[in-house]
Design a protein around this nucleic acid. Sequence first.
DNA 1: TTGTAGGCGTTATCAC
DNA 2: GTGATAACGCCTACAA
Lengths: 315, 315
Amino acid sequence: MISTLELARICGVSQGTVDRALHDRAGVSQATRARVLREAAARDYRPHPAAREILTGSNPVVQAVLPAANNLFFMDLAEQIGQALAGRGLRLQIALVRDRKALIETLEDAAARRQRLSIIIPPEDGIELPAGLVRDLPMVFLLAPCANPSVLFLSPDEERTGGSGVDYLARRGHRRIAFLSSPRLTQAVEARMRGYLKEMKSRNLTPDIFREGDLRSLPDWIAERKATALFCHNDWLAVQAIQALQKRAVRIPDDLSVLGVDASPTLASLFPNLTTLAYPVEALVASILSLLDGKNASLAHASCRIMSRGTVADI
Amino acid sequence: MISTLELARICGVSQGTVDRALHDRAGVSQATRARVLREAAARDYRPHPAAREILTGSNPVVQAVLPAANNLFFMDLAEQIGQALAGRGLRLQIALVRDRKALIETLEDAAARRQRLSIIIPPEDGIELPAGLVRDLPMVFLLAPCANPSVLFLSPDEERTGGSGVDYLARRGHRRIAFLSSPRLTQAVEARMRGYLKEMKSRNLTPDIFREGDLRSLPDWIAERKATALFCHNDWLAVQAIQALQKRAVRIPDDLSVLGVDASPTLASLFPNLTTLAYPVEALVASILSLLDGKNASLAHASCRIMSRGTVADI
DNA sequence: TTGTAGGCGTTATCAC
DNA sequence: GTGATAACGCCTACAA
């Protein structure tokens, strides 16, 4: 692979002239410019991004750090963000990490490379980052916050999401609405549960929360409580629940209405009729773009909106 | 962020001494070394990877390029590869591309950065790459080959996979075995179909291939043919088929046995009892590692092995 | 219009 | 044990 210096020697001109020709800057004769460009193309000259990064001290890369497991919704999110960034000449790189250690390594590397931004869905909760990292790398956490208070956390109003689910089901006549929580207790999980509890209480309904990781006991649990609706923390859990229930001949939505959260496109292509509360992906992407513009961003006023499809019945 | 030069000035020594101290090389007194390391830690010194890359002309990054859509199995693959690479001090970066243009841009960037290897699952079939790119960037294609003949294509024996599926079902008493193909006609898709056809013929069974993208007509199609088994090109299609069939009250596996291919862990966590032919991920990872060691690699002797679970019944 | 010089951060080599 | 120097590839400023 050829450098500007070699190119200059080949063309019998100086490095400065090559640079002017390549960047279409003034100060080169048409003939010389054409000559340089021709040779550059013929020999597949490619500017070395690392050199520019050292020189300018900046790097047009945005990194998405995703947990290695359960990445379906996260991948869809990354896909959306990547598409939005492409319009701005920024490149999205995805890294998969499975624990705190791998996360910090990845972020240290991004900081050393002066990357523009790291968008992090943490693999564990309450991760505390070294102060130097927080100082040197622009970061946003999604879905679960960082333990360091100064690190931005972008999240829609999850308590409202919890309330919206209950509201939607209650308006359709349900009174025995159970909640299927994620066994992992992130901030988002707790907030949705809180919203569920509040809204149930304000309607004088009895809340019931299932939070075991193993869903095999879910059908019995639901039967005991005579629930007519199951509000699930996310689509993934909703689908797992539906599988477990159908195996026990529970009909959805005739016997039980099921509501998820996320509206992940990939999962939706497998289960097109799952009723769900759509995560405000567009608002999230807009926030990230405005962050990149140096403005400050918040998602506090966004929340999940209902996408009514086939798994909730009126009763 | 601080550089070795600044660090040297702070410690009142030369850059060379700082370098020796940081890299634990001989030629520094214990006192000086300790001093340098202390200052480096205190000021969060991070070596700039770009500088090293320019100097050494190499970059410890392996890139996985995945199509933006349908990425569930691909993500699992990337996860496995990343884990294997971590043991070698290599970092896996994932890029999502949705077309030929984005693929080439991503690869040009990787080439310019002197990345170690790009592992590509192409977003379209028969993509032809610029000759300069092929020369300058080590690449492997998975699942569908590159149009340039010199680019390595790592694939298990897909024809054998097609045969194995028929063999497995036939041994369990099935004679009317239909095949659900992917509407997209990649090399792997064709090879599996070929294997299916050959094996059916050698057993004097009548082959039947469904290849529409829309699966709504699948239940009728299967009923017409009185098929007792459906061999699907991959797990994703198998799950879609099961959804479509269950909606029409077809019981799996009582009325119809279903066999997939891939054994993607993420999908398996949703459908733990799907019988499938497991893609030889370990052999693939081993091939990639030996490629990185400069050996040549092939998957031709690997093939998909059956994972017998709940969706195939003996009849 | 063109050439030269210097510097970005790191590392290797040669002196002292 | 330590310092000076040059090199990697690129870009900007200044001189010719």
